[in-house]
Structure formats: C-alpha cells, structure tokens
Design a protein around this nucleic acid. Structure first.
Lengths: 226, 226
DNA sequence: CGCATAGTTTGATCCTGACCGAAGCATTCA
DNA sequence: TGAATGCTTCGGTCAGGATCAAACTATGCG
C-alpha cells in the first residue's frame, strides 16, 4: 500500500508451510489434483481446497477443470522463477536447518524447474550454448541465432512447432543452487522432453530430481561442452 | 524440510506487513535505527525490536552498533535482489490493489535499489554499457572490459579504490518494474554516487524515487545512449 | 435415475504470533 | 554519579487464520 507492489501479502501467501509445500510440489510444471496436493502438504482436502482457492485468487496458480478433477499448476514461469529466487536466498541464510543430504546433491546436479532442466547440468547447457554463440544474451532477453537453430534441428527439436506456439521460446531463469542462469521457455521444455525420449534422462517420481543415464551423461557432455 | 531450502519460513518472515515495511524501507541500502524503523512500520519500539531480532537472526538484516544507536540495514545485495524479484511478481498479479499514481511513475523512471540506480534509467545504463562492450555478461557474472574501465575513468569513478574493496565490483540485479537487469555491485553504487556529486540526480527524501535534473537527463542520455 | 468420487462451503475450535505497557539494560552526557 | 536516551526483555492480551468434521454441490459411472 505504501510504496511499490504489495510484497507482504504475496510473501505471506507463500509463507504458510502447507502452501509452500503445494507450490514446491508444482515447481516442476506438472499439474496436480486437489487431493494429490492435499496429500503432498499433509493436510485434509477441505484445508487444501481453501489454500488452493487463495493461491488461485492471487494468480499464483492456474486452475483447469477436466471431468470431475480440478488440476492445479503454477500460473506461469514467472512464479516458478520467483520461487527459485526465494530458494536461492533461503539456501544462503542461516534459516535453513537442512543439511544437504544425498538427495539434495542429486537435486543440485539435475532437476526439473517448471518443465525445463535446472541444476548444474542446466547451467552447463546454458553456458555451452552462449559460449558457442548459439544463444545471444541481451539483458534478460535471449535470442536463438541461425547456428543455434541448426544445432537444435540436429538434436531433433522441432523449432517450427515451438515458434508457432504463443509461449516465449527462450527465457533465462536463475538457478537457486548454481546462482547462474539456465534456459527456460518453450525451447527449454522441448529440450528436456527430447533428452527424455532419447533416454538420456528420466524424471524421478516424487521429487524434482532427474536421473541421468550413463549414456546420457556422455552424450550430454558431448553436445554441451564447456 | 521436504525438498530444497526452507522457503516457507523465509517467506513468512517477509510476509508480515510490519516486517515487509521495514525491509522495503531499507531497500535503498541505507541504515536506519530501530526507532526510525518502528515509525516507518507504524508500530511501537518493543514490537519493532522483536521483528528486527527475527530478521537479524535469519541473516536478512545486519546490525551494527554505533554509540547508543543500533543501525540496521539489509544483510547484502542478495536480499535486495530477492525482494525486488518478489515485487516484480506482485506487480504482475491481481494481488496489487495499487493503481500506479504519479509517485509510482517516478519510481519506475529512476529509484534507488540498495544504493544503486534502478528503474528505466538504471536499465538504460546497463544496456548501453553492454551494447558497447564495456560490460560483458556471462550468465549471472559481469565483467568490466578494458574499454569499460577507460569509460569509468572518464566519468570520474575511482576504479582502483573499488577494486581494493572486498565487495563484488559488478553484479546484475533484476529490475521489478522493467523486468530487465540493471547494474548493482560496488560499481553500481559508485556510479550513482558520482551522478549525485555531478548534480545529475538527487535522492528524494522519504521515498526511493530519484529526482533527475534537466542537465542530468541530457548528460545521462549523452553518456548512456541506447 | 441412484451411488460413488472429487471438490467446495460452512461452522467451530484452537494456537501461533503480533502487539503493547512496564520494567530492565546499556550507553552517553552533564 | 545520576539523569536521559535508545533499545531489549517480559508478561499478558487478543485477533487472524489454519485446521478439520460435517454438510453440500458437481460430475461421472452403472
């Protein structure tokens, strides 16, 4: 109310443990039903329903009905980016009583962030693309160069289809563990999907961590050298 | 507790209206006393003291005693950056019942963000520096080129003194109103200070807005063309 | 049609945490 | 040394909001 946007209301919304759980669970971009989210957050359905209503009201979540299910997902990539920013801050502070366990290490190596690849490997990919001038970075904006387009075609990404969609093709997203940019946007999503069909990577059920096959690791380093 | 850093506790900390007021008041990087912050937030001293203790405990604030005063300021630029990120998200959402008034417009044009220049002019400066290869952007890292150093010397910034300090020289900070990067770090701070001594700009007491003189506007556009 | 499943609304409970007044420290100044 | 100022701690009050059970609505299935 005083100056700038109302940061308190937004932060308070994220600040409830149950809601934070819900948001975190949706960070990988998938859509979940109200009951699933209730279980994730460890609360009953009615309680979850209330939280979801608030989050949707605030445009943090998007609700789509499908049959008798209601699927919830993050409203857009901006929300995911802001959450990552908060995680980045929390990671550095004394706030975290969490010691990095083995799962944490896997998360830092490779994880899903709103459907695209994040973590050390996400950053590596981004830097490799920029270094070889496949990707141009101008402030916050990213642009795929003609060489970059060729490269994507080689990998097997259907750029034409992506460009037809109304989603932003390239977008940079700050990585909370690496503190560097990685590639988001529809191209980021398409690349991760491609890695999965190629058998390089597989999403870990129940967490945001990504498992990388032996073959995948070699192929990835070959395609995205630093 | 589940995965990633404890985002809920951090957000809850920011989510209290009084604490949000306090943090916002410190966004320009200056240090304020407990009583001043109490007044800003519209609470009594004891209450403010409690809030400040919590924020300090969480490493969001830094406390320095000086005589019988205790000065509080943001722990570091990362905190400011995360707050800006939250503001950026809040600005886009339905959350904000704030209509952009005239003061708001001034804030978008030029304001202080942790002692450096933000807003449209901050972004303009950043882009101008990058465009002329005075500043190299590699992911999140920024590097001043030799030409950039010459340019800074021309403007009258004492780079040697800055490099002697232990603060990071260049750092990019996401602008909540422009959604683009602007220049933070000790160089960002030094530049704003220089603009003030040159009489180009003057900080507005009581808000983060920056007033730009007629002369200053012309000179600024001359030095930082886009 | 009813029965079952998914979700929302309502009402009541209960607890955390913000808040303030008063008292207690600490530091400076006379 | 005392008086004044700035801040913190303590104790008690109170409100907002998270929670759940139960009742209600909506959708799909047999």
């Amino acid at each position: 109310m005083r100056e700038g946007p109302d940061i308190a209301r937004l932060a308070a919304l994220i600040g409830d443990p149950a809601r934070a759980q819900i948001l975190t669970a949706l960070m990988d971009g998938q859509a979940l039903t109200a009951s699933e989210l209730a279980e994730v957050a460890g609360i009953t359905l009615p309680t979850a329903s209330g939280h979801l209503a608030k989050l949707t009201e605030a445009d943090l979540l998007q609700r789509r009905k499908q049959g008798r299910h209601r699927y919830f997902q993050l409203a857009d990539a901006d929300v995911a980016a802001a959450l990552e920013a908060l995680m980045g801050l929390a990671a550095g502070r004394g706030i975290k009583p969490v010691r990095p366990g083995p799962k944490d290490a896997a998360m830092r190596e490779a994880r899903v962030c709103y459907n695209h690849l994040a973590g050390r490997m996400g950053v590596q990919m981004f830097q490799s693309l920029v270094q070889r001038d496949y990707l141009l970075e101008r402030g916050e904006d990213l642009k795929l160069t003609p060489q970059g387009s060729d490269f994507m075609a080689d990998i097997g990404v259907d750029l034409a289809a992506l460009e037809a969609g109304r989603a932003v093709l390239c977008r940079s997203c700050l990585d909370w563990s690496e503190r560097r940019s990685h590639l988001a946007g529809s191209l980021g999503r398409a690349l991760l999907a491609r890695f999965e069909t190629l058998g390089w990577m597989a999403r870990d059920e129940g967490s945001r961590a990504i498992r990388v096959s032996q073959k995948g690791r070699v192929a990835f380093d070959g395609h995205f050298p630093v």
